[in-house]
Amino acid sequence: MKELLYKIYNNALAVTLAILVHATVLIIIVLNMGWHSPEPVSPPPVPVKAQAVERERIEKDLARRAAEKRRRQEQQKRQQEEKRRLEKEKKIAAEKKRRQEAARQRKLAEEAEKKRRQEAARQRKLAEEAEKKRRQEEARQRKLAAEAEKKRQALLAKERRQKAVEQELLQAMEDEENQSKVQQLIALIQADVQNNWKIPPTARRGMECLLTVHLLPSGEVQTVQIARSSGDVVFDRSVQDAVYRASPLPVSSSSAGSRLFQTTFREFNFHFSPTNL
């Protein structure tokens, strides 16, 4: 059985070829006849039966077959040889082609490299140029900006000058109003300090004391310094205490008042000189 299988196997190629031929024929037919049957066509099985009766035929068949086989083998051998030769030729051709291709490739690579270098150089050159251009642009921009700033500053200065002039004008306009406000505040402060001044027994007509006071914006007395002493310790203390006692002094908290404060009441003097002694 093995042998049979082996035979089968050996004949497989022939069978396959036969099948291929048959199939091809069939396909052509089918294609010529059109599709009548959708079932795939399969070759009929080969019955293997040893029968004496048919010995001769068989032997004949076998001989034919062997001849067939030889012929097929020879054909096969020729075919193979041809194939080998062809393959060899093909190989040689391929090798040649490969070499040619390698050379071509090398050449291409070399060319590419050359091209790349050229490109790189070009790019470098371009970049340098761009950088140079950029720098130039920057410098130009800077110059422009500086000029613009200069212009802007000049404008601002001008505006400021103008504003100052305006303010001066405004101040001049307000001054009259402020003057009366200052007078009002002075009267209030004066009343406060006078109410808080306890004239000491040592006070004599003609005694004077000048104080410099520093106020916080709240009117709170920060410091009281004797700018000019009366020469009498108790008198000097009494006037200082009067200012401390009057703290906080009535200075306006409005915005106008706050400017008044800055200009007039942040630091000012008190001149004490009793007249009703």
């Binding site: 402060i189 001044w197 007039t264 001149h271 004490f272 000189s273 009793p274």
Partner: peptide, 8 residues
Amino acid sequence: LTIEITQG
């Protein structure tokens, strides 16, 4: 500014 104080 100098404020005069003459009374107490």
